[in-house]
């Protein structure tokens, strides 16, 4: 299988690549439109800041390429947020694949720390990236901004309030958490994506 990882200034490209290697996949890390278009699966990782990253994607014309991909695409963390319409982080318009906004966590009490960092459970999981056994399993999160629950929500997590742990629309899939850092549960989710 031909898996491409979108190459840009994101922090976790190599972690994603290592996770795929553990699953026996030799991915291509590339920003070449031709290679991205012809891949069977595309992964759009992301750790960083929304505005800087969006500007970079636009400069490289990756914004147009990503939103027009036809094969299964998986956005991870900032990758998922950039697939939304708009982000409060840097007050920036994003790719608009998911018609929803990205908001900053506002602590409601002293114990609510931002970023939301660590292992939390996913609930109300939907087919596609998830199977029923993944209900209530722990996955690893690190983020200060979140996508509210909306019509595209494919899994929900509770922190301060419920938010979208995952989104799905047509061929676009996304996780707020890091499957590449979520141990054996993360491996199942990555495998489910590879099987789509």
């Amino acid at each position: 299988m031909d898996v491409a990882i979108v190459k840009y200034n994101a922090g976790n490209i190599y972690s994603v690549n290592y996770a795929l290697k553990r699953l026996g996949i030799e991915a291509t890390i590339t920003a070449d439109p031709e290679l991205l278009n012809k891949a069977d699966k595309v992964i759009f990782p992301g750790v960083g800041e929304a505005e800087t990253t969006m500007n970079y994607l636009k400069e490289q014309k990756l914004d147009v390429i990503i939103k027009n991909l036809k094969q299964p695409v998986l956005g991870i963390c900032l990758g998922m947020q950039l697939m939304c319409r708009y982000s409060e982080e840097g007050d920036v318009n994003c790719l608009g694949i998911f018609d929803t906004d990205v908001k900053r966590f506002i602590p409601q009490k002293h114990e609510d720390k931002v970023p939301h960092m660590g292992w939390n459970t996913i609930t109300q999981v939907k087919d596609g990236l998830f199977n029923a056994e993944l209900e209530n399993q722990f996955v690893y999160f690190v983020h200060s901004y979140y996508v509210p629950v909306n019509e595209f929500t494919a899994a929900t997590t509770e922190y301060i309030h419920p938010f979208s742990a995952s989104l799905h629309k047509d061929n676009f899939y996304a996780t707020q958490f890091h499957p590449e850092k979520s141990g054996s549960v993360g491996e199942i989710i990555l495998n489910n994506f590879l099987k789509l």
Partner: peptide
Amino acid sequence: VAANISIP
């Protein structure tokens, strides 16, 4: 470690 371990 990064290549072999799937937790942070």
